[in-house]
Amino acid sequence: MNEVLLFASVLVGVVTALTQIIKTAVPHLSKNYVPLIALCLGVLVGAAAYPFAEGLDLTARLWAGGFAGLASTGLFEIGNERKGSTGKFGKVR
């Protein structure tokens, strides 16, 4: 499990960059689909990174890619500055 988390932490930067490229390349992409796109990209990058993770089997690399995809969405949202409110509890007075 430690190897999977270590590999996911390496992949998270790559997946974040690829997700951002897709978001800027597709102008009318709904923000609701971004986590799903990041998850799919993470799984694909995890599967394609065979030369860099020879000690992990395919299943472990897919899990690491999935973790990296979901973590990349959270990582981007932490750095993203929000303006306005999202509901009745978040109203700015």
Rank of each mutant, 00 (worst) to 15 (best):
V12W: 01
E81A: 06
A49T: 14
L18K: 08
A48Q: 14
V12E: 00
G46F: 04
L6F: 05
N2M: 03
A53N: 10
T73K: 04
I78P: 05
V45P: 07
G13M: 01
K91W: 02
T73F: 11
A71S: 14
S85D: 06
A48V: 15
P35L: 09
A8S: 03
V34P: 04
V10P: 01
G90V: 10
G66N: 11
L11P: 02
V12D: 00
P51Y: 01
L29E: 09
Y50S: 13
F76E: 11
A48R: 04
S85Y: 05
A25V: 06
L5T: 01
G55W: 05
C40M: 13
G90P: 02
L58H: 13
G13H: 00
L36P: 06
L58A: 15
F7R: 02
A53G: 10
L11H: 00
V34Q: 06
P51S: 03
S9N: 02
I22V: 11
L5Q: 00
G69Y: 08
G42Q: 04
V10T: 03
F52R: 08
L6S: 04
P51C: 04
R93W: 00
L44P: 14
V45H: 02
L6T: 03
G55S: 14
F52T: 13
A71E: 09
P35N: 10
G74D: 12
L39K: 05
S72W: 06
V43S: 09
L5N: 04
V26F: 06
L58V: 15
A47P: 11
T59P: 14
N80F: 10
A49R: 02
A17I: 05
A49C: 11
G87T: 09
R61C: 11
V15L: 01
L39E: 09
A60E: 15
L29D: 12
G13F: 00
G42D: 10
A68W: 08
K91F: 02
G84H: 00
L18S: 07
P51T: 07
V43A: 15
L70M: 12
G66D: 13
K23D: 05
I37Y: 03
G84P: 01
H28L: 10
A38I: 03
A68K: 07
D57Y: 12
L56Y: 08
V14G: 02
V26Y: 10
